[in-house]
Design a protein around this nucleic acid. Structure first.
Lengths: 299, 299
DNA sequence: CCTAGCTATAGATTTAATCTATGGTGCGAG
DNA sequence: CTCGCACCATAGATTAAATCTATAGCTAGG
C-alpha cells in the first residue's frame, strides 16, 4: 500500500470512472488501472465493480474508502504544516476563545518572528471547535478556560482526544460593560445588579451544551439574551445596548478601545484559563514562543 | 512523501542511528540515508542531527515524528483489517459491555460464517474502552446502553468521536441474583430489598466517571460494594455471596447457567441498549450480519 | 595516528511506475 | 442490426525511482 494508491482510489471513487480520474491525476489510464488492481490484489479485496459504463464501489470498497480517507486526511496535515517551508513561509495556527490577550500574544509573535513570508491563522471560535482543531492538528495550540462547572466534562473531552491542558492563570470573574453603562459607576457588581440588562454570550454551534459555554454562570436564568459570534459585534452591543458579558478580567485598552471597561463580579466562582496541546506531538518552536508570550502577558 | 519514508524516519528515530535502522529494515544504509534526505528536502526541514556517533532528533524532527506516527498508526489499521485476507482468514472485532446476548450473537455469527480460518475478538471491556476501540477502528462495532442519567455525556462523547448510536431495545432494569438468594422468592424487587446485600459492579478503569458505569443507579448509596472485571467472577459472587447486580433483564440460560436468575426492579428508569459504529466507514458484511443477529436475539 | 563506527556520495543495477498502442465489451444512435 | 463510442484491460516499451556495492570523509578513543 502506498499513499499514491490511496489517493488514486479516492479520486476514482469521486470521479466515478477511471478514465476521467486518470486525466485529473495527470497520468495515463492504464497506469491508474494497474495501480488500483495492485492494491486490490495486495489485500485480496474488490474495491470497484467495473463495467463499460464506468465503475461502482462495492460495499467492501466503501468500507476501504473510509480507512483511505482517514489516512489521506492525516497526510494533508503534514502538507499543510510543512508545505511552503521551502519558500521560507512560516506557518502558525491558534484556536482560542474570545480573549484579547490571545490576540495580543498572536500579534506579538508575528512581530517577533520578523518573517517576510508567512501564513498565520488566529481562530477565535467555539469551544468545541477549539478542541477539535487541536485534536486534528488543524491548530497547534488552543486556549480555553475551566471552572468548577465545566471542568469534568472538558477534561474528559480533552483526555478522549489525547490533549493536555496547562493552566496559565486563574481569573476572577469580571463583567465587561460599556463605559457609559449605568453600571459603570459601581465598583463591583453582583448578579442582582446585572438583571435588568441584556446578557451577551458567544454562540456555541450545535455543541450547545452548557459545559461548552464561553461564559461562566451561563445556567443562571436571564430575561434578555443576546448571542453573537464576533467579538467586535459583542463590544458594539455592550456599548449600544448597555449589555454585559461575564468573562475573565483580562482587558487590553489598546485592543478593545476605551469604551469597554471591566468590573469585578461578586460571585464564588473562578475561571482557570490555559492552553491545550496534542500530547503526541512536540510543540513547534513558534508554539513555544507563543506560550512564552502568553505567560508574560498574563502573569 | 511516501509511507515508506515515514516508516524509515520512525525506525531511525527508534534505533538512534541509520546503520542499524537499515539492518532492521533490510535495506542498505545508503538507501536509507538518501530516502531520509529526500523527505527532508521535500519539506525543507531537518529531522535529524547527524554525527559520527549516530543521529539525534531535532525539535523540528520530534514534531514531525508526531505526525508520522499518527499516519502510520492509521495505516496499521488497514493492514490489521485486510492482511490475512489473501489466505482467506476472516476477521471480526466487537467491543461490548458485559451482555450475554452480545456473546451469544458473536458465537452465532462465527457459526454462520462457516470459515475455516478466522480471527475473531470478543472484547468485553470497560465503557470508555468500547468507545475508544470503535473510534480508533480497533473494533468494528461496540455495544453499550444509554439511560436518562448518562445519555448526555455518552452521546456527546460519541459525537466527538464521530460515532453513531443505534438503539436495539429498551430494557426494564432487572436485578441478577443467585437462584438460592433469599431474594429469589420475591416476584419483583425494590431498592429497599437490595440494601442488605452486596452490590456487584464492573470496574471502569481510570475513566471512573459515574457516567461510564455499566450499571444504572450507580450513584445510589450502598454499604457493601464489590467491583470486578470479569463476568464469570461476577456470577460466582452473585451465587457465593448472595450479591446482586442491576442490569438489563436479557438473560440466556444456556450461557449463564441455571444458577443465575433475573428479577424485575421497581424503579422509574430504563436502559436503552444499542450499538455504536464509526460514521465515516461503511460497516463490513460481517458487521451487518452481526447486527441482524443482535436484532433477532433481542426483539 | 590508526582503527572502529558513524554518515555521505558516486555510479551501477534492479525494480517499479508510467507510457503508448491496442484489444475487448456492451449500449445506444442511426 | 451494426457501427461507433465510451468504457476498462492487457502487452510491451520506456522512463523514473529505489536500492545496491564500493568508497570517501569525519571524529572519538585506544
Amino acid at each position: 500500500m502506498t499513499l499514491k494508491q490511496l489517493q488514486y482510489v479516492v479520486t476514482v471513487a469521486d470521479e466515478g470512472n477511471i478514465t476521467s480520474a486518470a486525466r485529473k491525476l495527470f497520468i495515463a489510464q492504464p497506469s491508474l488501472t494497474s495501480a488500483i488492481h495492485e492494491l486490490e490484489n495486495e489485500y485480496n479485496i474488490t474495491i470497484f465493480m467495473r463495467s463499460n459504463k464506468g465503475i461502482k464501489l462495492t460495499s467492501e470498497g466503501e468500507e476501504f474508502l473510509g480507512y483511505a480517507r482517514q489516512i489521506l486526511d492525516q497526510t494533508e496535515l503534514i502538507e499543510e504544516r510543512y508545505a511552503g517551508k521551502g519558500t521560507g513561509k512560516l506557518k502558525f495556527f491558534v484556536s482560542a476563545q474570545h480573549y484579547s490577550f490571545a490576540v495580543e500574544a498572536f500579534v506579538e509573535l508575528l512581530k517577533r518572528s520578523g518573517a517576510e513570508k508567512y501564513e498565520f491563522h488566529m481562530r477565535e471560535t467555539q469551544t468545541f471547535n477549539i478542541i477539535d482543531d487541536v485534536a486534528h492538528l488543524r491548530s497547534e495550540i488552543g486556549i480555553l478556560y475551566l471552572n468548577k462547572f465545566n471542568e469534568e466534562v472538558i477534561l474528559k473531552t480533552l483526555k478522549d482526544n489525547n490533549l493536555s491542558f496547562t493552566p496559565l492563570f486563574k481569573a476572577q470573574p469580571h463583567v465587561f460593560i460599556g463605559k457609559n453603562s449605568p453600571l459603570a459607576k459601581k465598583k463591583a457588581l453582583t448578579l442582582e445588579d446585572l438583571k435588568p440588562y441584556p446578557r451577551l454570550s458567544y454562540e456555541q454551534g450545535s455543541h450547545n451544551s452548557f459545559y461548552f459555554s464561553e461564559e461562566i454562570l451561563s445556567t443562571v436564568d436571564c430575561d434578555k439574551e443576546l448571542v453573537v459570534l464576533d467579538r467586535a459585534t459583542l463590544f458594539n452591543m455592550l456599548i449600544g445596548l448597555n449589555g454585559y458579558t461575564i468573562c475573565s478580567g483580562v482587558i487590553n485598552e489598546e485592543l478593545n478601545g476605551p469604551n469597554i471597561i471591566a468590573k469585578k463580579l461578586k460571585v464564588d466562582d473562578y475561571m482557570e484559563i490555559g492552553y491545550i496541546l496534542p500530547q503526541s506531538i512536540r510543540p513547534s518552536h513558534l508554539t513555544c514562543e507563543y506560550i512564552e508570550i502568553l505567560k508574560s502577558l498574563t502573569k
